[in-house]
Amino acid sequence: MKVLLYFEGQSVIGKSGIGRALAHQKRALSSIGIQYTLDPSSTDYDILHVNTYGPKSAKLVAKAKRLGKKVIYHAHSTEEDFRNSFIGSNKLAPFVKKWLVHLYSQADFLITPTPYSRELLRSYGLTQPIAAISNGIDLQRYYPSKEKETAFRSYFSLSEEQKVIISVGLFFERKGLIDFVEIAKKMPDYTFIWFGDVPMYSIPHNIRRIVKVDHPKNVLFPGYIKGEVIEGAYSAADLFFFPSYEETEGIVVLEALASRQKVLLRNIPVYHGWMENGVNCYMGTSRQEFITLIEQITSLQLSNITEAGFKTAQSKSITEIGRELQIVYQAVLDESYNQSMYQQIVE
């Protein structure tokens, strides 16, 4: 068995969760001994596993179909999570949905990160088998490390006493960026750091202005940072606060859980079934509720539930994702496969 993994638009969305999903797929397949190629000109593969929905992706799918290859579409994207992102995204969203349905309908099999996103795809009228498989997490990379935590504190010149709230994501309204900044205005004794980046020309003026100038001094936008600084931030911060309004999963949530960090989320449907308020995270719905929860969590008034969060991350390790992908690949190729596991990940 050999798989062609394809990802279009690396320069635009390679720093997003989808970009990290591709890296996780490569690791996952290597962990279980499945051969893969990243070369779209290749023809010696059995399955095309495509992650993106641009014109090059569509062309490659058509080519694979002509060659008689099996096609798996990894449905990271939906109309819902396209809204409130790039300039004009809300006007384009209905057309994006039609395009997604056109592309996804050509696949032999669909993979999407959560049962929630699977339900969305079903509501689009798609009828293929759909597996809900997490994008996964590289656990060891995010284990707490004193060396990494020191690198993070040093990078931002933070004192040991300074309370720090972090978030990670593209500069999208959908991600809750406006709420993040407005809450920070009400909490001047805390430092709020938003890690992430996106080409500034691609986002609406109001979001661009917030990131560039219209935010209080206790909010930092350091851009896209990788390595020990961001990895140290996950465990050294006092809280990971992710007020996103719409996700298909949220890889950054898994990264925070793997770091044994306290996690505060907006209570939205994507988390139903795997994240539970007061069990492995805390959840809120309004700015005032978030402020209250931030104060309670960072002052240790609420129970420390980070170990339960870590166990959630463990259940979505790259090795486990590799096993689930293998089951889907085998089913698509009509080979013998683990029927009980298959039923767990497919409707």
Rank of each mutant, 00 (worst) to 15 (best):
E8A: 05
N304I: 04
V12E: 01
I345V: 11
E173N: 08
L67K: 08
V252A: 14
G68M: 10
L60T: 02
N84E: 13
Y104F: 14
I137Q: 07
D189F: 02
L264T: 11
I230H: 03
I87K: 09
M200S: 09
G176M: 08
I291F: 04
S41Q: 12
A184F: 00
V346T: 09
D46G: 11
A236M: 08
E149Y: 06
I210Q: 02
S134T: 09
T114M: 02
K226S: 15
G169R: 10
Y337L: 15
G125C: 12
W274E: 09
A236E: 13
V211D: 01
S259G: 09
L120S: 05
K146N: 14
E161P: 04
P113C: 01
I47K: 10
H49I: 07
T52L: 00
I18E: 00
K185L: 04
V3N: 10
G17N: 02
L293N: 03
S16A: 07
N84I: 06
G136N: 08
S244R: 04
V219S: 07
V270H: 06
N277P: 02
D39H: 07
E247H: 05
G227V: 14
Q25I: 08
Y45H: 03
Q339H: 12
G136S: 09
R122M: 02
W194I: 06
I87E: 03
F95D: 06
F156H: 04
H205A: 15
R118N: 14
P199M: 00
E320D: 10
D189C: 02
N218K: 04
A75E: 11
G223P: 01
S145F: 08
L92K: 07
K98Y: 04
G278N: 10
R122S: 00
G125A: 08
T319Q: 15
K175G: 14
E8P: 01
H24E: 15
F109C: 08
A308S: 07
Q162W: 05
H74R: 04
L257S: 11
Q326H: 11
L29E: 04
Y45Q: 09
Q314S: 08
V101K: 11
S157T: 11
E276V: 02
K175H: 12
P188G: 00
L220M: 10
D334L: 13
N135P: 07
I327R: 13
S159Y: 02
Y337D: 15
Q106V: 11
L67A: 11
T191R: 05
D179V: 03
A313K: 06
I305D: 04
Q339P: 03
V211F: 05
K69F: 15
F192L: 13
D81E: 15
F221A: 02
K63H: 14
R122D: 00
S286A: 03
E8M: 00
E255M: 07
A256Y: 03
E289I: 03
T150Y: 11
V101P: 01
K69Q: 13
S154Q: 15
S117L: 11
Q344E: 14
D189L: 10
I225Q: 01
T319C: 12
P55E: 00
V61W: 08
H272S: 11
